[in-house]
Amino acid sequence: MHEYSVVQALLTQCEEHAMANKAKKITKVVVKIGVMSGIEPYLLETAFNTFKETTVCDGGEFIMNIQPLTIECQECKTVSELEKIQYCCPKCESIDVKVIDGEEMFLMSLEMV
């Protein structure tokens, strides 16, 4: 499972931000996980809590916001948050849609002391 690799990348980012901000500790990490990012949130959380101990994030809280797939229809311009994974406008059924959110993983914010 690649959740471990993703957590490694995340912890490296946290270390860099802590250093840049001269922080001693990161007390909260907020991430946004798209439903189509290919990450299993439960496994990500487990991996984070396992590997944070030896890092600046030791003891830190991990907040995951799960981002539904969000598309903008290029025909009728409706923006929809989808419940089903189907790249099709729920209003006009056009398949000419642009993905706005839900396919990526983001580090959103850090709380540090």
Partner: peptide, 28 residues
């Protein structure tokens, strides 16, 4: 990235404790 993080400091959250750092986790 640092410059970027700085750029996006959210004034509402910026109590010198929370910083907004919107970056893709796999950006490297």
């Amino acid at each position: 990235q640092e410059a970027h993080a700085h750029l996006h400091d959210n004034p509402q959250l910026n109590d010198a404790k929370t910083i907004a750092v919107i970056t893709k986790i796999l950006d490297k």
